[in-house]
Design a protein around this nucleic acid. Structure first.
Lengths: 121, 121, 121, 121
DNA sequence: GTGGTCTAGACCACA
DNA sequence: GTGGTCTAGACCACA
């Protein structure tokens, strides 16, 4: 379910956070569904349990999972989470947009590019 | 001319690279204009010369400045540099865009946001 | 595995880059094999860790190794790397060739020399 | 007659040496022809006289010019000089060739490339 | 004066 | 333990 790319330059725990965020936002992991235990995932991915632990702590901090003592970790869900993420994304996009403006790109130049990317490439 | 933000979590040398790229792209530093010497800037910013050196080496690698041995560093210029940067920016934007798509945002939703940012910032 | 030549006038870090490139291209260091840690190699070669670090950073930039944070550096591999290097070599050769042409040497003169070098070295 | 490229990363004196070598080898400067005085060339190129002096000293050391006290500097000439240079070139080519061999390129692969470069591109 | 390389050593994030 | 960043300071080539 979760694959780690060792050649990715980002730290392992960060990749894990990213992966789980996506799985939860896309509904692959349903609200209140249990996610793998720290120990299990550590074995599965041949990764140090501390790294998993750190990723889960970060996911909890960002509101993507919650912990039930003695039971495990569970996915949050709902529109609020998705809405919050969309705002994050737009914030990121705005930052890039403002940089683009500052070096003289026009709004249309940017929108044209977006139109050209269309669905997926 | 160049200020360093201690609150910025990015490495000092990276901030320097970014700052100089912008100054050159916006024409604040004209083509073939000399940029501060490694030592001078180090004193001005109270930063170690090695850190400045690293930033300048990166700027040279990326084609923003050129070094004349024994004389100093000078800004590159021209449309090619700006064009190259615009492509970088669009690449960054595309990445955010694809993430946005993957969580179910629509093209129009994004374009509408962009239109709303307009000149306000 | 890696030896430094004090008589070589090129910077230490450059020699290191060259040595590792060769070891990786020839397969002496296998794909995904760990290369010595910055600190270890520094001690082994009696060279400052910063110098090793610089060489490794350059090797990563050129695509010869990848870094796993907290784990170490590992060799890349594959035909693409070799192909890229062959193009580099041919580019170098072309430069010498063009100089040769410009002083009046003929293509055949050069090819004859190459034929004569054959396997003898 | 001699143009300096400030964006060339090589030291100025080295570029000067290279330029004069070529002019002499190609016969643009005839044997025993006087080359510009240190002072004149320094003014013409807006370069420090010390830099010119250093280039001329190197040219003399390599046998490309000779100095007559009180008269100036004069070009050497003759086939011996050209022959010596061709050997230098072949030596350079051999070095690249051996590197190519060591990473598994074949003689034919290299000769094919050379054939393809033909005259000039 | 100007950049380039290198040593010595510290401190931090990550695993 | 492993890499990444940074300071302090030396020495060299080049102009």
């Amino acid at each position: 379910m979760v694959l780690i790319d060792v050649k990715d330059s980002r730290p392992l725990y960060e990749q894990l956070v990213e992966k789980f965020k996506m799985l939860i936002l896309k509904g692959v992991i349903a609200p209140d569904e249990k996610i793998p235990s720290v120990r299990n995932l550590a074995v599965d991915l041949s990764i140090n349990p501390n790294t998993i632990q750190r990723a889960y702590a970060e996911l909890e901090r960002q509101g993507y999972i919650y912990t039930v003592k003695g039971k495990g970790n569970f996915a949050m869900g709902g529109d609020k989470l998705l809405q919050q993420y969309k705002e994050e994304i737009l914030e990121q996009m705005k930052e890039v947009y403002l940089t683009a403006m500052s070096v003289g790109m026009t709004e249309e130049e940017i929108i044209d590019s977006i139109r050209r990317w269309k669905a997926y490439d």
